[in-house]
């Protein structure tokens, strides 16, 4: 009687600029897979959206003399317009600034707290605003211009803050078992190999809150912290399925059948995301696929 469900997502786009060919490519490919499964008789839920928090949104907005909310509203519209122009058949377009998403992110946070995986400590290190990541001193270098750079080539600055941490180090074995038991969890194969060797090389606990800015989702019970943008961003896939209301009509779609993402964010989806879900006691998505990029010659 009830048809087989199929839940597919694009990554949510970071709208601090206009959509470009990379966004279009991912949306078109994901749309083709969603449509294929609909024509094949499945009950499909196809999700896309925008990832609107984080310091880069704040900085771009400041540069333009508008609020981050205004920037998000303006550019989210461009991404929706692109979806229309590309004949994308998504069933929902989520914006992480929506109320439903704040609820879901705070709910998964509390589950991770309950599991004993969130703790507070002080954090310092070389921080790259562009990467939104801290680096070890040995990963950075001072170049001829006298500026210190991180491994991705972006400038870093020394930052000390109080931060909540996620006990990622506790998940190394469970993640390796996941990849071994489900060889299809990460695709294509080259991506899986990269992910496995990254996890094998050892996982450090992950800083998952910020106090240096407030454009984000407040940490429940300690509102001077906002969640690290990736905790909030990844949770969008749950939000759209109704989380934390497991009686929601759309909850039947979870777990997602496949997250279609760019290969540059494979680590967040294939390492952090399953670790968060394992911690919160939520079923894991079946597959994460990291596509390549389309670049112009010359």
């Amino acid at each position: 009687m009830s048809r087989e469900t199929f839940y597919i997502t694009t990554a949510i786009s970071y709208p601090n600029g206009s959509p470009h060919i990379g966004h279009a490519y991912e949306l078109i490919a994901t749309d083709a897979i969603a449509r294929f499964n609909r024509h094949d008789g499945k009950d499909v839920f196809f999700l896309s959206g925008t990832d609107e928090h984080g310091i880069k949104m704040l900085q771009t907005a400041r540069k333009e003399g508008i609020t981050p909310r205004e920037l998000a509203d303006r550019n989210a519209k461009l991404f929706r317009d692109m979806g229309h122009a590309l004949n994308a058949s998504y069933d929902d377009f989520i914006r992480t600034t929506e109320e439903r998403h704040h609820k879901a992110s705070q709910a998964i946070w509390l589950k991770m707290v309950e599991a004993g995986d969130i703790y507070k400590a002080s954090y310092n290190g070389w921080y790259s605003v562009r990467d939104e990541a801290y680096y070890q001193e040995e990963e950075t270098e001072v170049r001829a211009d006298g500026v210190r750079y991180g491994p991705q080539g972006s400038p870093v600055e020394w930052l000390e803050e109080e931060s909540y941490f996620f006990r990622l180090s506790a998940y190394q074995d469970r993640l390796l078992k996941l990849y071994a038991d489900n060889p299809g969890f990460v695709g294509p194969d080259e991506r899986r190999n990269e992910v496995v060797s990254f996890v094998k090389s050892g996982l450090k606990d992950l800083s998952v809150s910020r106090t240096t800015f407030d454009w984000g989702i407040p940490v429940p019970g300690d509102e001077k912290h906002v969640m690290y943008v990736w905790v909030d961003a990844l949770t969008n896939y749950l939000t759209a399925a109704g989380y934390p209301d497991e009686n929601a009509e759309r909850w039947r779609y979870w777990p997602a059948d496949v997250h279609i993402i760019g290969k540059d964010i494979i680590r967040f989806h294939a390492v952090y995301w399953p670790a968060f879900l394992l911690s919160a006691g939520i079923e894991l998505p079946k597959r994460v696929f990291g596509h390549g990029s389309r670049v112009q010659p010359r």
Partner: peptide
């Protein structure tokens, strides 16, 4: 975009 290059690989 869908036909020319395998989805998992880079292309121009």
């Amino acid at each position: 975009l869908l036909r020319e290059v395998p989805f998992g690989q880079d292309g121009n």
